[in-house]
């Protein structure tokens, strides 16, 4: 923290940020959050002062100078006063300049990740976030260790999304065709809400997930456990996990309900009618083909909109998903 930032923090005058967020802010759980909260409260109290001044004077004048019997005409007073007008131009100008400089400095800190950051790749798609760790593991929640700078490299598969974690005070638009970056260092163990903040269609408000901040050592334990779940769990359970984590559940229900794609309840082993009128039995081969080449045999009544998972799911994973489908009776 530079000297100027320290001075500015002092200027905030005792309105040190409240870790619970107080009346205005959500819980604060990152190193960036207190700096933002301090500035927020500085602007808040400055605004309260000026608001009270303006509205107070207005009310005072209305009460005092209201036209009433015996006071029909205004008292003489000047139409302008250069000294006064210069004062109320210059003082606000200086104050907003302070806010500007302070805001810019904190912004630079929020935008500059430390060199040794742990990197997680984030993919936004309608209407889901996926997090890819350096070892290739993909998860639907963002798991991170506490007190470690985390750098997010984000991209979108379709339209613009925005990655927003209120508790960390970070937000970044994720634009298709380019990489968006953000970073944070979590300071409290717990689960924090992630929102999509840029409107992206039907499921925009449900495009949420969580950041799970682990205690020291907890992240490594979690990683060893999940990274190997294909080998450790029974295939059907591993398949269920993949089904939820890799975006299948966005379009396919498992309870018979309608969605973008056909439900997978009671499908495996039964005949399926295709868009071209033919019929096919949903066996392992069909499931595999539908995952890798979704447009090859589209089920009647549905649009051919499913993206291919070629190169995104390994053979073992596809097998696990097929095993999971067998349990959906």
């Amino acid at each position: 923290m530079s000297l100027t930032t320290r001075l500015l923090d002092l200027l905030a005058g005792g309105v040190q940020s409240n870790p619970d967020g107080g009346f205005w802010m959500p819980e604060a759980a990152s190193t960036g959050a207190p700096a933002v909260d301090n500035l927020f409260h500085f602007i808040l109290w400055l605004s309260v002062f000026f608001f009270a001044l303006i509205v107070g004077l207005m009310v005072l004048f209305v009460v005092r100078y209201r036209r009433r019997a015996g006071r029909e005409e205004p008292e003489p007073s000047p139409n302008h006063n250069v000294a006064l007008e210069v004062t109320w131009t210059v003082i606000p100008l200086l104050l907003v300049f302070v806010i500007f400089v302070w805001g810019f400095k904190v912004f630079l800190d929020l935008n500059t990740p430390p060199a040794n950051s742990y990197e997680v790749l984030v993919t936004g798609q309608k209407w889901k976030w996926l997090f890819t760790y350096p070892n290739g593991h993909v998860d639907e929640n963002l798991h991170v260790p506490i007190d470690t700078p985390i750098r997010l490299v984000m991209t979108s598969e379709d339209v613009i999304h925005s990655f927003y974690v209120p508790a960390f005070r970070i937000k970044r638009d994720v634009v298709p065709g380019r990489y968006a970056k953000a970073w944070f260092r979590a300071t409290k163990v717990g689960e924090y809400q992630v929102f999509c903040a840029e409107y992206c269609g039907t499921g925009h408000s449900d495009m949420g997930t969580h950041v799970v901040v682990h205690e020291p050592g907890g992240f490594e334990r979690w990683m060893t456990e999940v990274a190997d779940f294909l080998n450790k769990l029974p295939p059907a359970e591993a398949g269920e996990r993949l089904f939820k984590a890799r975006g299948c559940a966005q379009c396919h229900t498992v309870d018979g309900g309608a969605s973008v794609g056909p439900t997978l309840k009671g499908v495996f082993g039964h005949a399926v009618t295709l868009a071209d009128g033919k019929s096919v039995t949903a066996d392992e081969d069909y499931v595999r083909e539908s995952i890798l080449e979704p447009q090859a045999k589209v089920v009647a009544g549905f649009q051919p909109v499913m993206p291919t998972y070629k190169g995104k799911l390994k053979d073992q994973e596809i097998t696990a998903i097929a095993e999971y489908m067998k349990t959906l009776k």
């Binding site: 700096a35 933002v36 500035l39 927020f40 602007i43 808040l44 400055l46 605004s47 000026f50 608001f51 303006i54 509205v55 207005m58 907003v96 806010i99 500007f100 302070w102 805001g103 810019f104 400095k105 904190v106 912004f107 800190d109 929020l110 925005s162 927003y164 209120p166 005070r169 970070i170 937000k171 903040a197 840029e198």
Partner: peptide, 26 residues
């Protein structure tokens, strides 16, 4: 004067880069 006062002053929060990151699109 009351409402525009609040409207104008809350603009200071949004004009400030660091605070806007949190408040943008909320």
């Amino acid at each position: 004067l009351f409402l525009f006062g609040i409207g104008g002053l809350t603009g200071l929060f949004l004009g400030s880069l660091a605070v806007d990151v949190h408040l943008h699109d909320t």
